[in-house]
Amino acid sequence: MNLVDMKNYLRLDHSEDDEMLSQFIAAAKSYIVNAIGRFVDGNSQFEIVVKMLVQHWYENRGMYESGTTGSSIPFTVENLLTQLRYTDDEVQEDEEKEDQRSAAPSDLSKENQDSR
């Protein structure tokens, strides 16, 4: 995850917040490592959680008190963190490779089905 990817995700075309975004990216990675106990390089869920956390922190820069709305970590992020915590990287990579090998043919048009 780099600054350019993050700015594209946030649809930002200015550089005024680049330093803050870089700090948010580093903080999001640390947050995830603290939550799951490891860094998951190249994992798409890890990248999504980084993006979601940075977006959340970028859009909610104020401080909030406990019990008020607006500042809690989104439910989707918590669910993805739980999956990352209990997923073995090697097993997930093997499953992704197997899914790619056994994917259905891309042409499933009605014409091909009728000709059987």
Results as ranks from 00 to 15, higher is better:
Met1Pro: 08
Met1Leu: 13
Asn2Arg: 08
Leu3Cys: 09
Asp5Pro: 00
Met6Pro: 01
Asn8Leu: 13
Asn8Cys: 04
Arg11Met: 13
Leu12Arg: 13
Leu12Pro: 02
Ser15Leu: 06
Ser15His: 12
Glu16Thr: 11
Asp17Cys: 03
Gln23Met: 14
Gln23Trp: 01
Phe24Ala: 04
Ile25His: 01
Ile25Pro: 01
Ala27Asn: 14
Ala28Glu: 04
Ala28Pro: 05
Lys29Thr: 09
Ile32His: 03
Ile32Arg: 02
Asn34Thr: 10
Ala35Glu: 12
Ile36Glu: 01
Gly37Lys: 02
Gly37Ala: 03
Arg38His: 03
Phe39Arg: 13
Asp41Cys: 05
Glu47His: 03
Ile48Glu: 10
Val49Tyr: 01
Val49Arg: 03
Val50Ala: 02
Met52Phe: 05
Leu53Asp: 02
Leu53Ala: 10
Leu53Trp: 04
Val54Thr: 08
His56Thr: 06
His56Lys: 02
Tyr58Trp: 15
Tyr58Phe: 15
Glu59Ile: 07
Asn60Tyr: 01
Asn60Leu: 00
Arg61Phe: 05
Arg61Leu: 04
Arg61Thr: 05
Gly62Asn: 09
Met63Gln: 10
Tyr64Phe: 15
Thr68Trp: 05
Thr69Arg: 12
Gly70Thr: 06
Gly70Cys: 07
Ser71Asp: 12
Ile73Leu: 07
Pro74His: 06
Phe75Ile: 08
Thr76Leu: 13
Asn79Cys: 11
Leu81Cys: 14
Leu81Arg: 03
Leu81Trp: 02
Thr82Cys: 07
Thr82Phe: 12
Thr82Ser: 14
Leu84Gly: 02
Tyr86Ala: 06
Glu90Tyr: 05
Val91Thr: 14
Val91Trp: 02
Gln92Phe: 12
Glu93Pro: 00
Glu93Val: 11
Glu96Lys: 15
Glu98Val: 10
Asp99Thr: 04
Ser102Lys: 11
Ala103Trp: 04
Pro105Cys: 04
Lys110Glu: 11
Lys110Phe: 11
Lys110His: 04
Asp114Ala: 13
Ser115Lys: 14
Ser115Met: 10
